[in-house]
Each structure stands twice: as C-alpha cells, then as structure tokens.
Amino acid sequence: MIVYRIANSLYKDDISGYGASIRGARWNTPGISMLYTSEHISLCALEMLVNILITEVKLNFHLLQINVPDTVSISSVAAQKLKQNWRDDEGYTNFIGSEFCKNKNSLVLKVPSAVITEEYNYLINPKHTDFKKVKIQSSKPFIFDQRLFSFK
C-alpha cells in the first residue's frame, strides 16, 4: 500500500513520528509517537492546511510517498462507529489513537479524516515491530498552490 505525507523539508527523512509526540495531535496524546499519512495527496494537503499557520505556508515542504507492505496488519475505525461529535472531541480521538499505539496489535490504523470524513488517513505506529518494513519510496519538493489562499 502506498500512503502519502507532506512534511516540512527539514524533516523529509524523518518518519519516526517524533513530531506528533511533542504536542500530540488529533489521534495521539503528547508522548505517543505516531506517523500521520493519508490515502491521497490532496487529502494530505488539506490536512496540512487545517493544521498549520498561514505564515508557515511559505516554508519548504516535501511530499513523501511511503510504502507500507501489504503483509502488515491494519486495523480500522469506521466513521459510523465513532460517537456523533467525534470531530469536535479531540480528547476522544486522542484516546483511541494513543490506545492503538500502546496496544501494538497492528502497525496501521485506518481512520476517517476530520476534514473529509469519506476519505481516510493511515496512522502508523513507529513502536510496532513491523515498522522497520515501512519505507520512504520517494520524496520531492511540494509547493502549495497560492490560489488556495486567495479568496475572491
């Protein structure tokens, strides 16, 4: 399976999940490492746009294409199985993702995107024994189209 990630170019070779562990994010609490990826490049871009400051858009970014072998274990969380207001309750999603990482039952957790609930993000647990099989397949500069920031 190929998944995608947009990262600050300074960290284009880092798939350790350390960045997410510093402050936590939607699906993990601080101290829990997690690698956030998406099924589509466009979803990566949208996820970045809702999570960065407008001043950060001018930073240098890289698009990573990441190979996750088809043989690894994947768990999933269906949007209809989540409580109704899950998008507004980060404590709830923090708990789900953090428990997933702590349990180490699967390498990957497929979750609905809070931006577009019909599309999916793939959360990868760097502490899982199969994480060594996850590889960056390609990396190239990524520039956000400036029209995304002009409202007419």
Score class of each variant (00 low, 15 high):
Gly97Tyr: 08
Asp130Trp: 04
Ser9Ile: 10
Ile15Thr: 06
Leu53Pro: 02
Tyr92Ser: 05
Glu99Tyr: 04
Lys104Ala: 12
Tyr36Asp: 04
Leu148Trp: 11
Gly97Asp: 06
Gln65Pro: 00
Ala45Ile: 10
Leu63Arg: 11
Val108Gly: 01
Val68Glu: 06
Tyr11Leu: 12
Tyr92Asn: 04
Phe95Trp: 09
Tyr11Ala: 06
Phe61Pro: 09
Arg87Lys: 15
Leu59His: 15
Val115Thr: 10
Ile41Ser: 04
Asn103Val: 01
Leu107Gly: 02
Tyr18Cys: 00
Gly31Cys: 10
Glu99Asn: 11
Asn60Arg: 13
Gln146Arg: 11
Tyr122Val: 02
Asn94Ser: 08
Phe61Lys: 08
Phe144Lys: 08
Tyr4Ile: 02
Asn125Val: 09
Glu90Phe: 12
Thr93Met: 03
Asn105Ile: 06
Ile54Gly: 04
Asp88Glu: 14
Ser16Glu: 07
Ile124Arg: 07
Leu46Lys: 05
Ser73Pro: 00
Val68Asp: 10
Asp13Phe: 10
Leu10Cys: 01
Phe95Ser: 12
Ser139Ala: 14
Gln80Tyr: 12
Val111Cys: 08
Gly91Ala: 09
Phe131Gln: 07
Tyr11Pro: 01
Leu49Ser: 05
Ser75His: 12
Ile41Pro: 06
Ile2Met: 09
Ile32Gly: 08
Lys110Ser: 10
Asn8His: 15
Arg23Tyr: 15
Ser113Phe: 02
Phe95Tyr: 10
Val50Asp: 09
Glu56Trp: 13
Lys152Cys: 00
Ile66Ala: 12
Ile66Pro: 08
Leu49Lys: 06
His128Cys: 06
Ala45Leu: 13
Gln84Pro: 03
Leu107Ser: 06
Glu56Met: 13
Leu109Ser: 05
Leu49Asn: 10
Ile54His: 13
Asn60Glu: 15
Ala78Gln: 14
Val50Asn: 14
Trp27Lys: 03
Pro112Arg: 01
Asp14Gln: 07
Lys127Gln: 12
Tyr11Thr: 07
Leu46Met: 14
Lys110Trp: 00
Ser73Lys: 15
Asn121His: 01
Val115Gly: 05
Ser9Trp: 00
Ile52Phe: 09
Glu39Val: 00
Thr37His: 07
Glu119His: 08
Ile96Gln: 02
Ile66Lys: 11
Asp13Ala: 09
Lys58Ile: 13
Tyr4Phe: 14
Asp13Ser: 11
Ala114Val: 11
Gly97Val: 07
Ile54Glu: 15
Pro69Ile: 05
Asn28Thr: 05
Ala7Phe: 00
Asp14Gly: 07
Leu59Val: 02
Pro112Lys: 03
Phe95Arg: 03
Lys110His: 02
